[in-house]
Design a binder for these strands. Structure first.
Lengths: 359, 359
DNA sequence: ATGAAAGCGCTAACAA
DNA sequence: TTGTTAGCGCTTTCAT
């Protein structure tokens, strides 16, 4: 285990060489105080001679009490968090805003790989000025608890409100209701639903009233509520993740095996576009025409060129903007502003996958 | 700008309360030395009373000279890096290995957003013990230079070798050659090629001999070479990124506009599966049957369920393992091992998208 | 505009 | 096994 900084020059050495005090040398680099251009040049020259590439971040961090690092707690397993374009776009918007301020993004797995330890060690002990819980907060969230215990301030994306933490949400419920109203207006009465994961545990299958009450994650619970603001769906299927294959499985169940033919839904509302895309694929495989035989609507507004020639009818949400809003919330927290909650608007965009109910 | 740690207890306070010295208290937490279970408990109890949640990482880092952070330099723009399942799987494998050792992954944009500044500020000044250049190194790589100037050790994934840096590569060239041999064995003689980006700049279009010589990034240049180990392709199209839409555009050019009908290729080898998938989609749109009219092979071995019922013939590379190997290289560097180069094997897996040449 | 001094919170030699 | 001592490299009052 070699020491990382072995033999590298320090600010003190540079100052000595330049014939100034360390504090002056510090100013030459930070620019945070008055200094003659001339002395600054002398310091910089000395630095160049010693191949000193600027103040060691570790020293700076300890002294200033800030690490310049924002921990991003990504849900479930990291691989999956990235496979989902939705996460990716949010992360992108977030990095954009934070990057402009020189803040770095530390990726932190949301779940512990080790049995018996509730959170990833990074949650408990990595240096970070703020943590962003991108995929919300569940009841008794162990990550939230660990962070709060450490005194790390948090920003919540799409989740239940947390005392003192900024929240960035979207019009989940209203958007879902709008999608359903669109289907109803097209004459659909038997509408099925494919839902995002209800909570931390991964479960697949049909949802009954009892299970419905257990929906804990806000995206799914809000969207479930939005649907019910308009109609009572004939069937709800819970998926373990927002992935095409799960949407396909769900639609296979809905259109094929599970629901009696006479009651077969004429429309499916999926809580994400990836799930909806899987549903479109399932419909195709079953020889059903979309939208003539079955209408399918999604949520997110992703661009899915490979679904061509179909274009999903979908509730578009401003994903990049959501990430940017999270980033601004982080900056606000760092600047000492009062935490606020923002709710971003969504809008239904009709594609080719929804049409009049058959017959 | 509130100080991050305002008012939080320190190890000294805990030690005082427990009636021991700071160093003893330190041992109670780190376990890096002999201590009576009894004293440890006393320290831990004192910590609990003061709501002290463990040593401040900043102090620990400065003292030990290690930040526990691994910078991952992701190519081009972050959004794109994540959109590509290839990056994602590598990153996943990397995080897996590093996570087990308690090391955090700091995402660092590979290109500067600010004009005139060659690298992202994080490259120049964020705390990191090692940096991983996941997507290789180009000639005169500004990131590499900045990191080396700082004395940050680097690990290179798929790129030209760097003095003193471990390298993780795959059998790019041999794998490509194998794919081409497969096509040749099927009777194909007119084979076109869709290539990954040649360098930092993003260019789209046909490739001539002069441009061919400029291929700078190892994945594309190695794969170009592998193809030429077997045949001279009739046509090569360069894409700006490994995305489905670019593969589609390329194949549209190859199968439609650009190449005279008489010379239309009967097979396309794409340097990535995403590009190949785009090519399949283009072929479908053009009314060409795959593989009866045109065979298409890719590289990576991704699972692309939405391409169903087609399954890509592809050169499978161990993506997760590549990430894991990068992670192990990082650990080796931190442990002071001699840097080594590893080359991971690939293997051609036949799907449904390649078949005998037409006629 | 510059310098002196103090100390951020911690760990690692070393001594006891 | 525990305590003493000495910084890690830097920034920030506060004098000058």
């Amino acid at each position: 285990m070699t020491r990382n900084n072995a033999g590298r020059p320090t600010l003190a050495r540079v100052a000595e060489r330049a014939g100034v005090s360390v504090s002056t040398a510090s100013l030459a680099f930070s620019g945070a105080g008055p200094i003659t251009p001339e002395t600054r040049d002398r310091v910089l020259a000395a630095a160049a001679e010693l191949a000193y590439s600027g103040p060691n971040p570790l020293g700076r961090q300890l002294r200033s009490g800030r690490s310049g690092i924002v921990g991003v707690i990504i849900g479930d397993n990291p691989g999956r968090a990235f496979r989902d374009p939705v996460s990716v776009k949010v992360l992108d918007g977030l990095m954009q805003v934070l990057g402009e301020q020189g803040l770095g993004v530390l990726l932190v797995p949301g779940t512990s790989r080790v049995e018996g330890v509730p959170v990833d060690p990074l949650v408990a002990s990595a240096a970070m000025d703020v943590a962003v819980l991108v995929w919300g907060v569940v009841t008794d969230d162990p990550n939230l608890e660990a962070l709060q215990r450490r005194g790390v301030r948090v920003v919540v994306g799409e989740g239940r409100p947390v005392e003192g933490a900024p929240l960035v949400a979207i019009e989940d419920r209203a958007g879902s209701a709008e999608a359903i109203r669109h289907l109803v207006a097209l004459g659909h009465t038997r509408i099925a639903e494919i839902a995002l994961p209800f909570g931390r545990e991964e479960r697949t299958g049909p949802v009954d009233a009892q299970r419905l009450a257990q929906a804990d994650r806000t995206p799914s619970s809000n969207r479930l509520a939005g649907v019910r603001d308009v109609v009572e769906p004939v069937f709800t299927w819970e998926t373990p993740a927002s992935l095409v294959e799960h949407g396909r499985d769900a639609a296979m169940a809905i259109l094929g095996e599970w629901v009696p033919d006479s009651e077969r839904p004429t429309a499916i509302f999926a809580q994400s576009d990836l799930l909806a895309a899987g549903a479109v694929i399932a419909a195709r495989e079953l020889g059903l025409r979309v939208p003539e035989d079955v209408s399918i609507a999604g949520f997110d507004g992703l661009d899915l060129p490979w679904l061509s020639p179909d274009v999903l009818t979908s509730v578009h949400q401003p994903l990049g903007e959501k990430g940017a809003a999270l980033g601004r919330a982080v900056l606000g927290l760092l600047a000492g502003d009062e935490p606020t909650a923002v709710t971003l608007p969504v809008r239904l965009v009709q594609g080719t996958t929804t049409g009049p109910a058959p017959r």
